[in-house]
Design a protein around this nucleic acid. Structure first.
Length: 1140
RNA sequence: GCGCGCGUAGCUCAGUUGGUUAGAGCGCAGCCCUGAUAAGGCUGAGGUCCCAAGUUCGAAUCUUGGCGCGCGCACCA
């Protein structure tokens, strides 16, 4: 027997009970052990970092990650769900620094790397509990106990293995990179961190003369000795390190004459900026000569400081074509030069700008030998070196003023002003400006694999599709080599050891490999630490500082030692290596098999911010490492490492702004769970909008997902259980055979279960809808389209609740408990609920489980040993499959038409202000299409009931109140007629529609006269629109016109009064808190007249509607009467409850 | 500056071979039901589909150009 169902569902309470049930019965574990005839469905968990609190955006990600594995599992796939945690990186170090109250690398080193690393390792798990609790509470099934962790030894070694592959193939190299550098902290900052620290500041901005050298080139251009290039900079401190001046080859430049203080000089600037510059100094700058940017290339100049040029000014190198060229201080071409600001000539200090550095690189490339070297007068601490002796030891930003003064003294300062611009500061030490600075860095040669990555990307099924050629494709197309190394502490150590003598290097692929090296030293540092503190996690042995201590004999030079480079790697590499590193591939026993069976992933999902993050790191690593050929040579066809990827939109806070803790513009997930439940939140995510649209998080919308879907389904379920209890409908006692998932085949064992074809039309209809829903939901879910799957489920539950259950109520209420018609209704509704429970299981797993536990487990009882006769959890069931034989599109269309006609009828009544309680004589239907008229005629009873009318009539020729319009079927005629379509529209507007219709009906064709000749129209090339003529109580839609008769006879009025009275009695019953089985006696006292007559006439009707044993027309002793207005009269009404 | 996305009812959002009257939920107004009942249902009002031009017989939908918002990248010499 079913358990009683609480009238009002407390979803959060039900959910916690389900969680206990899942935990105790190990339902998730069992779901993984189900037979998997369809094979594996591979899912990769993009590792979140447990170093921050989870917020609603993470709930969306985790909800989407959950629904597809659950769905596929029910569809017969085995889907392992290994959790993972991203644990390395600067954010962790920052957290620890905050706790320690320190900032810089110096301070970290003073504190000690060893204790610092230990603190990092502990800090990683700061919010782990909240993450695990959230994950479980949301119902995200994932193997938390078997999670991969990026700092674990096996993981690190797997990353090492992959880096060794790259190194051995020459894909890992050392180079320079211009980074945003926090000089005081001695650290490069990631772009995200830099982005956080922009502030508007005023910097000194100087216009500096670079005097042109009067050589042959200058002469050829007609430039006098007194001519200068005019350059502009907002960072005067970079001038001592100047190496080139850049012009745009396509721009036009001019030599202008500038006369002031009695002197005349000539300046070279871009023509477009002449007036702007003239305005700055308030002088005329007259054009003396015009030159093209490309003409200027090679022109030499005197840099403002001679720290380098004094020695190297005349140094030349050999070009690839055999000619020779001075290494620096000449004009070069660069496309990035603009005329937005400045002078059109750009001062190039390759050490302090990325584009500047690129200029140097391309200059270097021109030389066969002895090209320009990088000039850099600044040390990593941001202070000038001895190479700029005037400023040695001074912080660059502070030296700006003195440098400007020096330039003025040298007579090179043309103009000086303050320049307001955004400049990045360190986000942790706000007073520290960042500088661009060259650092040695390790790179992965990804750009060499651009085409491969694009080819791989082309095969990925991105949802939404535009990611492939849009954001992600564009990103790949502009690929630059991956700057892998970080000069930090808490990260995967770069496994490269350098010969201290020769500088030659080799990569090490595992700790074991390292241990086998000859002359190994330094392992004792770890061993001692472990001995001193036995609880130290072994994972730390592969981390700084222990790993740095390990040296071995160099294979490159006798007696020399190999020592590790100091860097750790970008933690994005860690997560991108996850497809193989999660298994500890290839060192860990069993990992080879695991990796091979779980590669590539069928499905991953993260938010769009992972485009350049995890999506890229995975694709890049996989493409470089495995290409299209596997390691063993067999082909790993693209795409890999993932085939389908749902890219989630960003979730915004309630105010439409980015979610932020400080703004408090969102409700904490835990609050949502406690108030509305996880299913409500999940449903809101799945059904609210397609996952890739960025949406506002809305508590209101989460709340609304309850009545819209969850509660509506709950009401159907509760209705069923209530009446099954009353009628003793007990499937368990009818189903004597073997049971498991209670599909139609199992239900059919019951004697009272009739084949669908034998049941009533309403039953057949709802089962048809059920199977159609099943079909659409599986089709949509196979295509990773949860949104439209949910839309279909909403539509079905609406139909079930508002049409099937409502239209079937009298069958459930009928007295005869063994009435086959009634039993059909029970079996039908039972099947609908069981199937729906399975259909919703991946989406709202808690509600599904609650319903299953009652409908199936409790409903069918247990074996003698106490185990349930049915599957013990809905999540151990197969997903329903649609039976095409049950789907009846025709019936579906008919029922839709019926519902529409009824809706029109109600609309018509409303227009005439005739409430539904007042019976009316008749409605007339005039349908636009005759297809289903016969069927509707058969179901006139239902229409009568719904609309409370006595008679339904079908009018075929109703010119009296229907206006006909014949419209062309644009879809059919458009392509055929083109421009003539307008003529058809005109002609049809003028023609007599009724007679045209007549003609079409009889001969299936009609000829109309167009302005340019006759046209023959087929009957199916036009559509008829019906419109109610004014003056009638009518409503119309595409289906046709419904007219209600407004004439109310005395009998109809009397019946209406009786119904009004019933309505009042029902309210009294409710006020008296009657149970719905309570019987009553009604006493009516009133002046004789219309009202009393009506009630006497309909006494029997009143009794049956109000569960009255009898209706008497006298007072009932001991009962306080209630006054009820009926018609124009007030009656004294006595209601007495007969306790049963 | 470049790229990507978005712009539809008061609010949150749907809307694909371009097709006749653009939808849903909430909110609002009116009503119904009272044997699912601290629920449920019906009906209605509410729209320059951001603007402009173009393609087309026909544009919310396709193209181009604006405007606004979001995100990413670059730049800020």
């Amino acid at each position: 027997m079913f358990r009683n169902v609480a009238a009002s569902a407390d979803f959060p309470a039900l959910e916690t009970a389900v969680l206990d049930f899942w935990r105790e019965r190990k339902i998730y574990e069992k779901s993984l052990q189900r037979p998997a005839p369809e094979g594996s469905f591979v899912f990769y968990e993009g590792p979140p970092t447990a170093n921050g609190m989870p917020h609603p955006g993470h709930c969306l990600t985790r909800a989407i990650k959950d629904v597809f594995p659950r769905y596929r599992t029910m569809r017969g796939y085995r889907c392992l769900r290994k959790a993972g945690w991203d644990t390395h990186g600067l954010p962790v170090e920052v957290e620890v620094c905050k706790d320690l109250g320190i900032h810089s690398k110096e301070e970290i080193e003073a504190y000690g790397i060893e204790p610092f690393i230990k603190k990092c390792q502990q800090s990683v798990w700061r919010y782990m509990q909240q993450w695990e609790r959230l994950t479980e509470r949301l119902g995200f099934w994932v193997d938390l106990k078997d999670a991969y962790v990026t700092y674990h030894k096996a993981y690190v070694e797997s990353v090492w293995w992959s880096l060794k592959q790259l190194f051995d193939q020459g894909l890992l190299y050392q180079g320079h990179k211009i980074v945003w550098w926090w000089a005081q902290g001695g650290t490069a900052l990631s772009s995200g961190e830099v982005g956080q620290g922009y502030r508007q500041v005023a910097d000194p901005s100087v216009y500096v003369r670079f005097p042109v050298l009067a050589d042959a080139k200058a002469k050829k251009l007609g430039l006098d000795a007194g001519t200068s290039l005019l350059v502009w900079t907002t960072t005067p401190w970079t001038l001592p390190s100047n190496q080139f001046a850049a012009v745009h080859p396509e721009l036009e430049y001019v030599v202008v004459a500038d006369e002031h203080e009695g002197k005349a000089e000539k300046l070279l600037i871009a023509v477009a900026l002449r007036e702007v510059l003239a305005a700055k100094v308030g002088r005329e700058l007259n054009v003396v000569a015009t030159l093209k940017g490309s003409d200027l290339i090679g022109l030499r100049y005197q840099p403002p400081f001679d720290y380098y040029s004094a020695k190297l000014g005349e140094t030349t190198g050999k070009l690839a074509d055999g000619a020779s060229e001075v290494v620096a201080w000449r004009v070069v071409a660069a496309d990035f030069v603009t005329i937005d600001s400045g002078t059109g000539i750009v001062h190039i200090a390759p050490a302090f700008g990325e584009v500047d550095y690129d200029v140097l690189q391309s200059e270097k490339a021109r030389f066969a030998s002895h090209g320009p070297d990088l000039i850099c007068a600044v040390a990593p601490d941001g202070k000038f070196t001895h190479e700029a002796p005037d400023y040695q030891g001074r912080w660059v930003k502070e030296a700006d003023k003195d440098i400007a003064r020096a330039i003025r003294e040298k007579g090179l300062l043309w103009h000086r002003e303050e320049y307001l611009h955004d400049y990045p500061f360190c986000w942790r030490a706000e007073q520290d400006p960042l500088i661009q600075y060259p650092r040695k860095s390790w790179f992965i040669r990804t750009s060499q694999f651009k085409e491969d990555m694009l080819a791989n990307n082309a095969e990925i099924n991105w949802l939404p599709e535009h990611i492939r050629d849009g954001r992600f494709g564009n990103f790949l197309a502009t690929n630059v080599d991956w700057a892998l190394s970080r000069e930090r502490y808490w990260g995967t150590p770069l496994p490269i050891w350098v010969c201290q003598q020769t500088g030659k290097m080799e990569a090490v692929g595992s700790y074991e490999e390292l241990r086998k090296k000859p002359g190994l030293k330094g392992t004792e540092v770890w061993e001692a630490a472990k001995k001193a503190e036995p609880s130290l996690p072994d994972d730390l042995m592969v981390h700084k500082p222990y790993i740095d201590e390990i040296t071995y004999e160099s294979p490159f030079a006798k007696g020399a030692h190999m020592r590790r480079v100091t860097e750790v790697i970008d933690c994005w590499y860690d997560s991108g290596a996850m497809p193989f590193a999660q298994w500890g591939y290839p060192q860990k026993p069993g990992s080879v098999e695991q990796f091979e069976s779980q590669f590539p992933a069928d499905f991953i999902s993260e938010a769009i911010d992972q485009t350049r993050g995890w999506f890229y790191s995975q694709l890049a690593i996989s493409t470089l490492l495995f290409g299209e050929k596997g390691k063993t040579g067999e082909v790993v066809p693209y795409p890999h490492p993932f085939k389908n990827c749902i890219v989630l939109g960003l979730m915004l806070g309630e105010d439409g702004q980015k979610m932020s803790k400080s703004k408090r513009n969102y409700r904490e997930p835990t609050e949502i769970f406690d108030k509305y439940g996880a299913d409500a939140l999940r449903w809101y995510f799945y059904a609210g909008s397609p996952p890739w649209t960025s949406t506002r998080y809305s508590e209101q919308a989460i709340k609304e997902s309850i009545p819209e879907f969850l509660l509506r389904l709950w009401n159907c379920y509760s209705f069923f259980v209530i009446y099954a209890g009353i009628d003793g409908f007990d499937p368990g006692s009818h189903l004597i055979g073997k049971l498991s998932e209670l599909g139609p085949d199992e239900l059919a064992q019951a004697e009272t279960y009739r084949p669908v074809a034998k049941r009533s039309e309403l039953d057949r209809w709802v089962l048809s809808e059920l199977h159609r829903t099943t079909q659409i939901v599986t089709e949509r879910m196979d295509a990773y389209d949860n949104f439209n799957a949910c839309a279909q489920l909403i539509a079905f539950v609406d139909a079930l609740s508002n049409w099937y259950v409502r239209r079937s109520r009298d069958r459930f209420w009928s007295e005869d408990k063994q009435d086959q018609n009634k039993l059909d209704a029970y079996w039908t509704l039972y099947e609908c609920l069981l199937t729906t429970t399975k259909l919703i299981a991946p989406f709202t797993p808690f509600l599904a489980e609650t319903m299953w536990q009652n409908l199936a487990v409790a409903g069918c009882g247990s074996h003698p040993d106490g185990t349930p006769r049915t599957a013990e959890s809905v999540h151990l069931c197969d997903y329903p499959t649609a039976d095409p034989a049950v789907i009846d599109e025709h019936l579906s269309a008919q029922m839709n038409l019926m519902r529409e006609v009824v809706s029109l009828g109600r609309s018509a009544r409303m227009g005439a202000k005739l409430k539904v309680r007042q019976p009316l004589a008749k409605v007339e239907l005039c349908l636009a299409q005759g297809t289903h008229q016969a069927w509707l005629e058969q179901h006139a009873g239902l229409i009568r009931e719904e609309l409370n009318v006595k008679k339904v009539e079908f009018a075929t020729r109703a010119d009296e109140y229907v206006a006909y319009t014949v419209l062309p079927d644009l879809k059919k005629l458009g392509p055929k007629l083109g421009k003539r379509l307008n003529l058809v529209k005109q002609a049809l507007g003028k023609v007599n529609a009724a007679s045209l219709l007549q003609e079409l009906e009889t001969s299936k064709q009609a000829t109309i006269e167009l302005a340019d000749g006759p046209l023959v129209l087929d009957a199916d090339e036009v559509q008829v629109r019906l419109q109610a003529k004014p003056g009638w109580a009518a409503a119309h839609s595409g289906a046709g016109v419904v007219v209600v008769s407004t004439e109310v006879t005395p009998e109809l009025v009397a019946e209406g009064l009786a119904r009004d009275f019933v309505h009042s009695i029902q309210n009294i019953r409710k006020d008296m808190s009657c149970r719905y089985t309570d019987r009553i006696v009604i006493g009516i006292v009133g002046e004789p007249g219309e009202a009393v007559n009506a009630l006497q006439q309909f006494a029997e009707y009143i009794s049956s509607e109000t569960l009255a044993i009898k209706v008497v027309f006298e007072a009932i002793a001991g009962v306080t009467p209630v006054e009820i207005p009926v018609g124009g009269q007030t009656l004294q009404v006595y209601v007495q409850v007969q306790k049963s």
